[in-house]
Design a protein around this nucleic acid. Structure first.
Lengths: 249, 249
DNA sequence: TTGCTCCTCACGTCACGTGAGGTGGC
DNA sequence: TTGCTCCTCACGTCACGTGAGGTGGC
């Protein structure tokens, strides 16, 4: 007595549905049928299903197996190609694991890119800053990001910064001007450290113009009107100081 | 000016369709729209998409990311679980590669199981035998297969075997009887070697009864009527000899 | 009017899993 | 009649890819 569909499936260590699927895609010939319509599989079918099972277990797709045909000889080229693909996949997964281990060991935030994360660990960033850094990381290239990370590391603690972060949206004119003035020395220092960063803009993935637009967009989203006004005022004060330097020199 | 769908996609290093898919599955809130119906994304959206991108790159599924929610803190348990899964996947792929290398170095047939392949290399099997071995390999467990492989290795070359393999389906009675008689000594030897194999039937995956039915089914498919008849005659001759041993002893 | 970008359906991919609904022999 | 196995549709899965057909501002 020949085997039923369930039986070859079990003999081959696969599923009923898989065997039927192999019929559907033309990988496996349909066997003769009994009077009641039941399929009757023979040894040839079992051998075929076993071969398919071995090849899928190795990682071949059904279309690749179709391409190999029904011959006994092993397709050396296909095996070598698969081997190379497996090697590449393993390498990729290994790298992912290295990154995971890094994240786990440093308790580093998952949304910060790995180059910046260690630096950000030292300087304590607000949520807003963190968002800003995330945007920066995509807008600058990896080179720019390294420069930025360096800057963060060398950044001295700034007592006036919290005054800026805590500034309410409806702060009055005098308050804004005061904060801006106290920020000038700090901003000047940032500028000095910052040279490398601005020149690196040119190798950013999307071009310098795009970088500026994107960052200004990000700032509009992240800071309130009073803070944006303070940034503008600080900018003006810096320029005024620079031009008075020019005239006095 | 806020970002368009294509723009956040590019900023996040993903595709237009992926961003829309994240909306569809509720991973990403839809932003405000412009008068013409165009979506307008802000920094919060970009940060969210970047987070999704990082997590999918690490290997999380979208439903896992959904389960993590929108919080900044990294889900330590999820990261550890993923790490373990990656380790397991890498191990599995490594084992597949070892098997691939074995197949490649030995030029071994892909449809023979690895335990038997080296043995089969020495004894030269016909196509029919190979099919038979493939069936055997599934029907006996790995233990049984090792025993069978041992038997194959110790199998002395048999000059009368080819007479059996070449037997035409319409061979006459006398020819069949002759072949059967010449096979008796060889079959007796096989039986002796074979003890271990028969006792191992009990630990086969499907039970001893199933093993016998399956193998007899395989033989009916693989050998012609004359050959099957010879097998039966050899069997009878062996039994007759055994019982005459009993009476004489 | 011609291009370009945006939009919303909606089907396709891959290797099956999982019922739904019906049949045949005990 | 009840239970079991077999059969054939046919929709679901997962993370999007890929047109199809239409709109709005230059």
């Amino acid at each position: 007595m020949p085997w039923s569909t369930r039986e070859i499936a079990e003999l081959a260590g696969t599923s009923l549905r898989a065997v039927r699927h192999y019929h559907d895609v033309g990988l496996l010939d349909e066997p003769e049928r009994h009077g009641n319509g039941y399929k009757q599989y023979g040894v040839a079918h079992l051998v075929r299903v076993l071969r398919i099972k071995r090849l899928t277990d190795l990682g071949f797709s059904l279309s690749q197996i179709t391409a190999m045909g029904d011959t006994d000889d092993h397709p050396e080229q296909a095996l070598r190609t698969l081997d190379a693909e497996l090697a590449a996949t393993i390498e990729r997964l290994r790298r992912v694991r290295v990154e995971l281990d890094l994240i786990l060991s440093q308790a580093v935030l998952t949304d910060l890119p790995p180059e910046i994360a260690p630096a950000a660990d030292g300087a304590d960033l607000t949520d807003t800053d963190r968002s800003f850094v995330v945007v920066l990381s995509r807008v600058l290239g990896p080179e720019g990001m390294r420069a930025y990370a360096d800057m963060l590391k060398n950044l001295p603690a700034n007592p006036d910064a919290s005054e800026f972060y805590d500034l309410p949206a409806d702060a009055d004119d005098r308050t804004r001007q005061g904060v801006a003035e106290r920020l000038v020395p700090y901003a000047r220092m940032l500028r000095a450290e910052n040279r490398g960063l601005s020149t690196l803009n040119s190798d950013a993935p999307h071009g310098a113009r795009f970088v500026e637009q994107t960052l200004s967009e990000a700032m509009k989203d992240l800071y309130n009107p009073a803070q944006l006004d303070v940034v503008e005022r600080t900018e003006l004060l810096l320029r005024a100081a620079a031009s008075s330097d020019d005239t006095t020199s």
